[in-house]
Design a protein around this nucleic acid. Structure first.
Lengths: 240, 240
DNA sequence: AAGTGGTCTAGACCACAAA
DNA sequence: TTGTGGTCTAGACCACTTT
């Protein structure tokens, strides 16, 4: 029996928030089964319909999955469904492009002013910088630099080489679930540094993507700059 | 009293589909008020809760808007909310960039093979091609070419000059509501033609956006190619 | 057979907006 | 004051999964 101290919020919202808090705190881990509608209703002294509405809201936001006859489970970022949800590069036939790791360097350093501001760190707080070049069919197609709050990812440097997809690593090993990514895209000429790493001539047009990745509670946990060669690939997005 | 012949579908789904059919057919036009939950329930012989679930689903898909104390209304693509929902260009501070019309040409011509396929036309069916250059603070920043099924937009050519935002025009004057846009983005060198129209040197990097715009029933009604200069602006998108 | 979520009902009361 | 949508309850029955 948990107490729901807040006033003025609808009951279903309080149940929703309480369950979400248990997920965020790690009390309920991805894959864990939640109490049934009936049990949840009893725990929070509401009707089954109200518990159902809270669970449905959690399902809509992607935090839990519901299956008739089986139960409600904390969502797992499964490889099939969303391993590459935030990776928007596609082949010309719109099939998912999956670049393979080519090189990787991880550094621990002090954040610059912009990074500290975006990641909500103290000035010059510690960050990890992951720089990777990836290729498709032996052709280098992207250079990505991810910057993370070092405190949230202890021992990250020792995990090198990192898996191809970083977000499942964040979730499984650090309990950080990425649910949203805001991206800014520009077309620019490759700098000499980028051109060198991607083995193209200087001033080749590249697609620059600046990403802020958010976790469940809305914190920016990753700032990433990517540079893509888009002669054979494109960035695909659906607006609705 | 409408009959809901289909079997095996949940009642709320049948009510949802029936109301959606009325909107798509033009029986209920944007801005029109829907029956209240109580009336709708009576019309389809279901409980108020079931009618409510159907209306909530319509609201989630953006087809209607609900306001406590006022009623439920067919969604209007209002200037404030979504006039520029599909226009993703932003200033550096993330404020909405609103380019002003600079030039416009509208042609009626036969569709090429790709256009016919994408727009589901017969080979060499009639299309309208709208080519526009737009600028911000007197600097040309984009060149856009939209291709439409001519049969869906009778007399479009005579409406020139078209308003800055095309989708409200599609909706108000032709009953075509755009609800989704799939976009493919690439960084490329400006062709001599594009460079000329945007008054930049050839081979300047430009952001190419290829868009397919879908209406309520899932038809592709517009194929658009845009070329943006992204030195002062960027394309902004939120993935979740 | 038991337990789960999915649908559906028929009411109740509340908050908000307009006449 | 009336009508609207928003919340909430307490039940019913169904479909699906597991034991």
């Amino acid at each position: 029996m948990s107490s729901l101290s807040e006033q003025a919020l609808p009951l279903y919202q309080r149940v929703h928030d309480a369950v979400m808090a248990r997920i965020v705190s790690g009390d309920l881990t991805p894959g864990a089964m939640l109490p049934s509608e009936f049990d949840l209703a009893a725990q929070y002294s509401v009707s089954q319909g109200t518990a159902r509405k809270a669970l449905n809201k959690l399902e809509q936001s992607g935090l839990v999955e519901r299956h008739q006859g089986k139960g409600t489970f904390v969502a797992t970022t499964t490889p099939e469904t969303s391993l590459f949800h935030f990776f928007r590069l596609r082949h010309q036939d719109e099939s998912q492009a999956i670049p393979q790791p080519f090189s990787e360097t991880i550094r621990r350093r002090a954040a610059n002013a912009k990074e500290a501001q975006v990641l909500s760190l103290e000035a010059r707080g510690a960050v990890f910088e992951i720089a990777r070049v990836r290729c498709i069919k032996k052709t280098k197609v992207c250079h990505e630099t991810s910057v993370l709050n070092a405190d949230l990812f202890p021992g990250l440097k020792e995990r090198s080489p990192l898996p191809n997809a970083l977000y499942p690593l964040y979730q499984r090993s650090y309990g950080v679930t990425i649910v949203r990514a805001d991206e800014q895209l520009r077309a620019m000429e490759a700098t000499s540094s980028i051109a060198n790493m991607l083995a193209v001539s200087e001033a080749t047009p590249v697609l620059e993507v600046e990403r802020r990745a958010f976790d469940i509670v809305g914190r920016v946990v990753e700032l990433r700059f990517s540079f893509y060669l888009t002669s054979q690939l494109h960035y695909s997005v659906s607006l609705r």
